[in-house]
């Protein structure tokens, strides 16, 4: 999902078997791990990577939607989109703070992102070509994100779980506002409905890729599951998303761009589900490793924002230092 780049990588640690077993026992007992607790190096490393990638995704995720704020069709749409993008900035902040509790600095993480070394969700490397894309992102991308993030509220690492609880609470309106946009377009003119269909056509497959590689190729998954960082596998969450979303697309009167999509009564342990066609994992690997259509623009936009804000950060620190000096000399004069 927001940490797709992790999959396939293995963690290693040099801890004793006894230590690892003791730690696993705590995790198995559903005890939360807090920042100052002893933890395997692999657990710490996995979390730093996952949380920082998640944070980067929130921050980069502001860009495709920010692209449409000035062109939102009504004031109602504009305030909703502004609030959503503002939330994403906040979510990035909560997550960077959670990662910082593991000993990595905000500056390090920012540096990795700006130098193009950090990964973030592949979905944000696609362009937002029409207003309908804002509807599709809220409906599909936030829908997929919520499906992935709700289990993260029970993550074994306390600060991450707490950040996710806040995020999930705040994000619940994001998906609805997207669906509302899609519904308005689908009930509008033919041209509007075509826009909605075009957006679904372009965002459907990238949304399915958000859940990461298939379980058969996701070696890292197993360890993350054992450590209760992850609660469900990529494929099971993807299936849950498909089952929910196909029905919503039907309600909208849109067709899912998958000729192989069919009801399979054997899926979901015999309860039935929608079996989707093959996913283009080649495209996924290309986009997640920084070769998506908008990858260069996204990083360039973040660099520009960082550079343009440099004088503000410098001024704030200079002002703070000046006031500290004034306090110090006042204290010296008084003593």
């Amino acid at each position: 999902m927001y940490s797709q780049g992790l999959d396939g990588k293995t963690a290693s640690s040099t801890e004793t078997i006894e230590f690892l077993e003791r730690f696993q026992k705590r995790v198995d007992a559903e005890e939360k791990i807090e920042p100052m607790d002893d933890m395997p190096a692999g657990y710490r490393k996995t979390l730093v990577r996952q949380i920082s990638q998640h944070a980067h995704s929130e921050i980069v995720g502001m860009l495709p939607e920010g692209n449409w704020i000035t062109r939102a069709p009504t004031l109602r749409r504009k305030i909703a989109l502004l609030a959503k993008v503002q939330d994403e900035g906040g979510h990035g902040l909560y997550l960077y703070a959670a990662a910082e509790t593991l000993g990595v600095s905000r500056e390090q993480m920012t540096e990795e992102l700006l130098e193009g070394r950090a990964k973030y969700s592949s979905i944000f490397n696609y362009p937002t070509l029409s207003w309908a894309d804002i509807g599709a992102i809220g409906w599909l991308v936030d829908g997929a994100a919520i499906m992935n993030q709700i289990p993260l509220c029970r993550c074994s690492f306390g600060p991450y779980a707490r950040a996710m609880i806040r995020i999930c609470k705040e994000e619940s309106f994001h998906q609805r506002q997207g669906f509302e946009i899609m519904l308005a377009l689908c009930r509008g003119t033919n041209r509007q409905k075509e826009m909605a269909q075009d957006a679904l056509d372009r965002w459907w497959w990238p949304s399915l890729m958000m859940f990461g590689p298939p379980d058969s190729e996701s070696k890292h998954s197993e360890l993350s599951m054992a450590w209760k960082i992850k609660r469900f596998t990529n494929d099971s969450l993807r299936q849950k998303f498909v089952d929910a979303t196909v029905r919503q697309a039907n309600f909208l009167g849109l067709s899912v761009p998958d000729p192989d999509l069919e009801w399979d009564p054997d899926l979901n342990g015999g309860e039935g589900g929608f079996r989707h066609g093959p996913i283009d994992w080649e495209e996924f690997r290309r986009v997640v490793s920084g070769h998506g259509p908008m990858a260069k623009e996204r990083i360039a936009a973040r660099r520009k924002a960082w550079n343009d804000g440099a004088w503000v950060r410098d001024a704030a620190m200079a002002h703070s230092a000046k006031r500290q000096r004034a306090r110090n000399s006042a204290a010296a004069a008084a003593s």
Binding site: S105, R106, E107, T110, E111, L114, E115, A300, R303, K304, W306, N307, A310, R313, D314, M317
Partner: peptide
């Protein structure tokens, strides 16, 4: 656009 390392590692 290319940032030098030193620019990023400003005083935190």
């Amino acid at each position: 656009l290319r940032l030098r390392r030193v620019e990023i590692l400003t005083e935190s």
